[in-house]
């Protein structure tokens, strides 16, 4: 992500030891973090990890059992009305009126937030231009990508200082997802702080800093680059003609610590550095794999996530 022209020195959002239970389930435990002004902060993790609960606490919709949270200098419990004027929120479930047209939805939310479309048109122009041909269509009849764009417009209409986007790209195809992230980049350039959650690990790269969340806890908070740098073992991409057989054979090798399929190659780590890629090549040939391709690679966020999340706890 390009450097923002805004200095990242003011804390916009912070959480201190937040705990929250839902019935017997500990939805969040001991969450602490800070988000700086003008930053895109990603909360990355699978469904059920606690992302939505965290977003609801930060948007003043839910009370934490323990811990404090501040948004734009206001306490989420005591000053919730001040916070509500300053933030834009896009809940996880698609949240517009399906039986209202694009135009009617926008007008409605503009009025609810005491503004007009004209007043903040510059903020939504880039997105709205794409929606304009469908402005008299009912929101329910839009495609997934278009719905997300409309929801973003509605969340932006009152020129919020902080934008909370809860899984804006879930279920959206890769092209629309990419476009959506391009839009977020533009909003960041206008100085808006963005907190966004996603289950898609590849989107982590587009954030300034990310928090990896699993089972209600942050397992790491850092920039994507630092997280990747922190990957302990050398990582190899291995491919051959018969990928499924290759996977099984790699798993059977006792020097292999982990092996996961990653698209066109399997990502493999070894228990210690004494085992090299040449050794692996020999092993695979002994199993009848010729035409192998082994190369050392830089890990992706997904590699890091799997490495950090405790095995067996995969939920």
């Amino acid at each position: 992500m390009a450097e923002s022209k805004y200095q990242m020195n003011r804390i916009m959002v912070q959480g201190h030891n937040i705990f929250r239970k839902y019935g017997k389930v500990q939805a969040l435990s001991d969450i602490s973090f800070e988000v700086m002004e003008g930053e895109i902060f990603g909360v990355i993790g699978p469904d059920g990890a606690g992302k939505t609960t965290l977003f609801r606490i930060l948007t003043t919709l839910l009370l934490a059992d323990q811990g404090q949270a501040m948004v734009n200098g206001f306490d989420v419990v005591e000053d919730y009305t001040s916070i509500r004027k300053k933030i834009g929120y896009m809940p996880g479930k698609f949240s517009l009126y399906q039986d209202l047209t694009v135009q009617e939805n926008l007008d409605f939310f503009a009025t609810v937030f005491n503004t007009t479309i004209e007043e903040n048109y510059h903020l939504i122009r880039d997105i709205y231009v794409q929606l304009e041909p469908f402005k008299s269509r009912r929101a329910g009849a839009l495609s997934g990508g278009m719905k997300q764009k409309l929801a973003l417009c509605c969340a932006l209409i009152h020129k919020p200082e902080i934008l909370f986007l809860d899984e804006p790209t879930t279920g959206v195809d890769p092209v629309s997802r990419r476009e959506f992230w391009e839009m977020l980049g533009k909003l960041k350039a206008q100085g808006i702080t963005i907190i966004v959650s996603t289950p898609y690990m590849d989107e982590a790269e587009k954030c300034d800093r990310i928090a990896l969340i699993q089972g209600g806890s942050f397992i790491q908070i850092d920039t994507p680059e630092n997280i990747k740098d922190g990957y302990a073992n050398p990582l190899y991409a291995v491919s051959s003609e018969s990928m499924y057989a290759l996977l099984k054979d790699l798993r059977s090798c006792e020097r292999v610590k982990s092996c996961y399929p990653f698209g066109d190659a399997h990502h493999v780590t070894f228990f210690d550095d004494s085992f090299t890629s040449e050794d692996l090549e020999k092993f695979l040939q002994s199993k009848g794999h010729n035409d192998n391709n082994i190369s050392k690679i830089r890990p992706t966020i997904e590699d890091c996530f799997m490495n950090l999340s405790s095995p067996g706890d995969a939920s």
Partner: peptide, 10 residues
């Protein structure tokens, strides 16, 4: 989920 947005609004 529209209630969430309305609640968050002023």
């Amino acid at each position: 989920g529209t209630m969430e947005i309305l609640l968050v609004s002023p």
